[in-house]
Write a protein that binds this DNA or RNA. Structure first.
Lengths: 251, 251
DNA sequence: CCAACCAATATTGTCGACACTTTTAAAGTT
DNA sequence: AACTTTAAAAGTGTCGACAATATTGGTTGG
């Protein structure tokens, strides 16, 4: 029913971003290698990475002829890619005017947090209620991996948010609700990543976040959906408050 | 930031559905009348209505050349409309194979309810916290209108779900969170409508639903976000249970 | 000097045609 | 008769060109 979802959150981000190093690289080269994906698919993946990572600046105008030349593709295929980006709310299109990359606003970021609190809270509840043995093993392994990484980096200035991303990604997967999975992992998380890359949300919350993650997984293991949901919502709201503070200091 | 959202849920559904009565009606006729919308836009709106209302059967294959001929448009414009339908999860496309209307499954319907519980619960909480005087007036008026309609129809066999739809639509609008509004009103609700139309969810819950609506609005008026969220979640979960029972009896 | 108007340019929307893939149907073989 | 192979048909993906619209720059009038 839903689109493809890679098992790990990180590889889905890196798989395509590594494919295009130089600017003028032709996308069509991989025509025979990777089986069934269209040119528009590849354009979409490439542009998605470039927008998320800020290589195409937030708020900037997108010129169809220019991009088409750059990727050596027709405007038709490019337009298909742009429309998919629009459905992710990574760009905005206006009739007879053109497309712009969305700009990152404080309000938009806070709105995302409220939606995440609702959806991931539900995902966490469902994960606790429907958890499979396999999910439990993977969640536990992931937690131990993050603990080790945290030990290694103790004292370093900032905390790479990939661990946090993995955590949320996996729990959503464990919910078993395909609509929820698609909404979060294939849509909303790309905007989350865009904010993280470009506003550089390097939280000093590393240790605290790890403890919170740990408690959430315990609730899932115990099959306590109600508690799991409460803890996840508090976890996300704490993150939101943290950001809110940081933003208010900047202004 | 988000797309257009009409003030009422009903007119957004009727505005376009009424435009195309006969099958072969040309879409391009309205080119000069309604200002700035493209042919692909109109195709999208028309097809969306036809799919939601079941005039294009759930699960059926979609032929691009056939539809293009029928609406007297080029395949390019039609494809753009199809891609937007795909982003609403009203159709599914597979490379080099084509598009099919999604089919309605029991599981899919229950998944929607879980997502609605999460999102509308949050919307209700935000509406209670951010409510404007204008929102309160409109919500109260809507409730009175529904009460009158309920009186008129007392004893009739089934309950038109439009009132229920209006209720949820308005509360989401009052949340003030554009992402939430867009996700629910411009995306998810069309799938909800599709299930209602085609599986004919005529609830006998009319009276009970009205009482629940009333309590929810009271909580919003009182500015009690926590209670408003709890009540909305219970309201939706009750609806879900009701459907679940009905479905299990059919099988 | 500024504002409004107008022509020239660039960009988007739409279309029809061609290339490639999948599906269908027939022919042939075991 | 059933299965495989093969050719024809249909459908999708991609492209380049044309038409309609928005933007830019210059010109004119106040």
């Amino acid at each position: 029913m839903e689109q493809q979802v890679s098992k790990s959150s990180t590889d889905s981000a890196d798989a395509d971003s590594g494919a295009e190093a130089a600017v003028g690289t032709s996308i069509g080269a991989a025509k025979s290698t990777s089986g069934s994906q269209s040119l528009a698919d590849r354009l979409f993946l490439t542009l998605r990475s470039e927008i998320v990572e800020g290589r195409i600046a937030a708020g900037s105008k997108i010129s169809e002829p220019e991009l088409a030349r750059r990727f050596d593709a027709s405007r038709g295929s490019l337009r298909e890619a742009l429309m998919r980006l629009e459905s992710l709310s990574l760009i905005e299109r206006r009739v007879n005017v053109g497309a712009r990359v969305v700009d990152l606003t404080e309000r938009g970021l806070l709105e995302i947090y409220d939606v995440r609190e609702a959806l991931e809270g539900m995902a966490c509840r469902l994960a606790a209620e429907n958890r499979s043995e396999e999910d439990l093993v993977e969640l536990r392994q992931m937690l131990e991996r993050h603990e080790q990484q945290e030990e290694l980096q103790k004292g370093t200035a900032y905390y790479q948010p990939e661990g946090d991303f993995d955590f949320h990604f996996r729990i959503v997967q464990a919910s078993g609700n395909d609509l929820l999975i698609d909404t979060l992992c294939n849509k909303l998380y790309f905007r989350v990543r865009m904010y993280r890359y470009q506003l550089g949300m390097a939280s000093p919350r590393a240790h605290r976040a790890f403890r919170e993650h740990s408690h959430i997984i315990e609730a899932i293991e115990a099959g306590d959906g109600e508690l799991a949901e409460i803890l996840m919502r508090r976890h996300i709201r704490a993150s939101r408050s943290n950001i809110e503070n940081k933003l208010s200091k900047q202004n």
